[in-house]
Design a protein around this nucleic acid. Structure first.
Lengths: 207, 207, 207, 207
DNA sequence: AATGAATGAGCCTTCATTCAT
DNA sequence: CATGAATGAAGGCTCATTCAT
């Protein structure tokens, strides 16, 4: 029996899909499952979304929006506190947020690796993080320093491959890593933050 | 009645599978396709391999073996030539090798991100590289330096997330990155090597 | 709240449906498509028509009405001019009219061939044409001739299967025939009229 | 449980499909139904045939082959008997054979009317009948007469639209016609043969 | 060593139709 | 008069896997 608010239904599909995609991946989740968990008819899913892929798309973009808010808040919080400590807490905030969306981050990465895929969501996420880092944290840190990069792309390569990538890969591989190398997660995150500061942040730090 | 030597058939399945997995990913390749391209019956595939996943497994391991050889050769070359330049050339050699296997590296990463996956191939690859770096290059370079890590895991986290990961992610994302950010690949590799030295290698360098 | 005059909406549905049925056939057209092209809601279609089949029905009947007008006009024109030449021009007029509705004629035929179909539209169309021919042209021509048929059904079988059917089948198959047998359409229509006179009309002609 | 002779299975699919297509039309028959009636798995159907359309194709072509045999036999039988009587029996034989395949003839016609369809089966059937008529019956009849057609296409248009078409349309519409016009079928076939001779055959008859 | 045949489970999608508003 | 939302029922097809030979 239908006739509730369609917006609610749509949001619910999104919510359940995010949950299922997170738990079982995109390919591992069937539209039947989504419909069943939503307690709606499968056709209703297709009334609200053109295709399964479009659901994924919507899920991803709503996460991106959520991420933006989190990042903004973190940035605001450390506005007057651009020391090493607050950077550490910014990174930790990022890791915390993403850790909750771990599986979806995996999906973003996996989809980005498929050769045919044109979603570019990984880069959009990166833009979000790096641009903020750029305008918020980074600028502060380097205000008085010599800027070590000659152009935007050189800078972006640095931020993306030595900053953004290690962080998200840490998030998605943390569990497996700690199991494989037999290392407690509390230790790991400590090591990682340390490693991140030693490598990527060495450029950002005041000498 | 056996038509040919079974060993040849098996090797052929592996070869074709590597090709197909590389082009279309694991999920995107069907056993039918493998059999067709091998010009053998689908059941023959299952005579040689217990499951599709086992094919993937074999493909992965044969790549690992190949990688080992390459790494060994590179290491040997560096033996008498362990200055910064040769580290650069080592990294370049690594990137070159992996670039040829780009799609398979993608598969290794993608498979590693799947929650159910128990292969740990990504970690095995990492072990291979890092151990070699550890025993071969690194030890040499740091023989007389203060070793900045307190224990093996701290060291491994560093090597894995700020060394290995950036390199392999660079390899698999290079094309898409250069397209998305409109940056020539020749420039990119230059920026990347520079970035890698600035971040990860900063620890390895002699001060 | 009513947006427009309901009558207009209904007529529009009919118009669009005729167009779509013509282009893609009845089965090939979905109610969604009709609604979309009408820029109305799908449920609105069902407000005006009980079912998709009823739309088809209405479309068919409105064509029948149109056909009646055309036939009447043609008949009138022939009234004072009932020689062989004008019969030819009558047939040509018929073909011309129907050629414009080619696809709908196809639909009528296709629907008539479906076993469950109870519309009998094909027969109704035939009645229309044959009756007119009967009352108008034929009677005139055969007023003084020996009538070659012993009863109404014998006459109807003759008119239907050797007169009406060849004409409508010519109309709907003309394009494909000319392509398959590599024959120009201008030639074809000439051959067909000739063939029609040789066969069907041989009975109607004055000896 | 599998492992019978694959050829038998394939033939069975064809047999059941012919039956179902005949009873319910192409669109009205689902692959599920075919599989169920064959008591095999749906996937087995797809093992033997690439698609549902390919099944139709095969069914049609096997009918065409069957038809060829029938036609050949009829032709042989009247080899030395080219009088009106034997022509009548040839037409009756044709009608008899096709009447058994009534629904399939409908399908051929319907498929031929679909604008996108490229099957051309209707024309192939026509070729079969007309060519035989040409080489067998027709030649005999006109041996000594003046040939009334100036070229092959003119002749084909005549045979196709005033000979072949009336016959097949009679076959597929017989039931509905007799019901609509309230006419017994025994009478109808008599009227039809008579009508056919009066119109189409008038050209073939010796004057 | 190799194969033809078969299968079960599942997948995404479409469609005509209905109902509360 | 018109609509947004929802549905049940199918439908065509794919895929990894198995078994008898």
């Amino acid at each position: 029996m239908p006739k509730t608010n369609g917006y609610i239904t749509k949001e619910n599909i999104l919510k359940i899909s995010e949950k299922l995609f997170s738990e079982k991946g995109y390919d591992g989740t069937s539209v039947d499952e989504i419909a069943n968990l939503c307690k709606i008819n499968k056709a209703t899913v297709y009334y609200h979304f053109k295709s399964k892929e479009q659901i994924l798309n919507s899920v991803m973009h709503s996460i991106l929006d959520e991420a933006k808010k989190i990042v903004n808040i973190s940035i605001d919080e450390m506005h007057n506190n651009s020391d090493v400590k607050s950077i550490r807490s910014y990174i930790e905030a990022l890791i915390n947020f993403m850790t909750n969306k771990k599986k979806l981050v995996s999906i973003i990465i996996m989809e980005s690796l498929k050769s045919k895929n044109k979603l570019d969501l990984l880069f959009k996420c990166a833009d979000l993080i790096i641009d903020h880092e750029n305008d918020g944290v980074y600028q502060k840190l380097n205000k008085h320093d010599e800027f070590p990069f000659n152009n935007k792309n050189e800078y972006l390569v640095y931020e993306f491959f030595t900053g953004f990538i290690p962080i998200i890969m840490y998030i998605v591989l943390e569990d497996k890593w700690s199991e494989y190398y037999n290392c407690k997660k509390e230790k790991m995150i400590e090591y990682f933050i340390e490693a991140f500061e030693r490598s990527h942040m060495s450029v950002h730090k005041e000498k």
